[in-house]
């Protein structure tokens, strides 16, 4: 099987890789780039645990083929810290107790980040609509909504 050359930016790094044409972005991030923050919880696009932001859009990386992101700018949870400062969402998730087992957390934060990037002051209802793209089994979502609200006030 032929591999393909793919170039994209992930967090602050530009990377060029030879990938399988049928490789998912989730596999590339986790297996080739050791960015294991994005998780595989269902592998079928039903849960959002693998969400990363591609050119400003939140994407289920388990449904994206790596060749599709050639030339794209990708942000993963590992790339949220700026100059050693946590992103307001990361701070707020900690302070509001929005994290329990943590397996959905990366995807949840990245979904919320894409929201705050396109909508600086979302309403509570908008936040709920957005994070209804992701499953959390532990928290009942209340503290996640509160964290996104708090982060929106800080950005």
């Amino acid at each position: 099987m032929k591999t393909m050359k793919v170039t994209f930016q992930v967090n602050s790094d530009k990377v060029t890789l030879q990938v399988k044409p049928y490789e998912t972005l989730l596999e590339t991030l986790r297996e080739r780039l050791a960015l294991t923050g994005a998780k595989e919880a269902c592998g079928m696009g039903s849960c959002g645990a693998c969400t990363v932001v591609v050119d400003g859009i939140p994407m289920r990386s388990c449904l994206v083929l790596t060749p599709e992101v050639n030339g794209a700018v990708i942000t993963t949870v590992e790339g949220l810290k700026q100059d050693d400062r946590l992103h307001p969402l990361q701070e707020a998730f900690m302070e509001k107790g929005a994290v329990q087992c943590g397996f959905c957390t990366s995807g949840m934060i990245m979904t919320a980040k894409a929201l705050l990037d396109r909508n600086k002051k979302p309403t509570k209802k908008e936040i709920i609509t957005t994070i209804s793209s992701n499953i959390c089994r532990c928290t009942g979502y209340k503290k996640i909504v509160e964290a996104v609200e708090a982060a929106a006030k800080r950005t």
Partner: peptide
């Protein structure tokens, strides 16, 4: 703040 949350929010 839970002791395990920093590692979890940073991936």
């Amino acid at each position: 703040v839970r002791s395990d949350s920093l590692a979890k929010v940073t991936g």
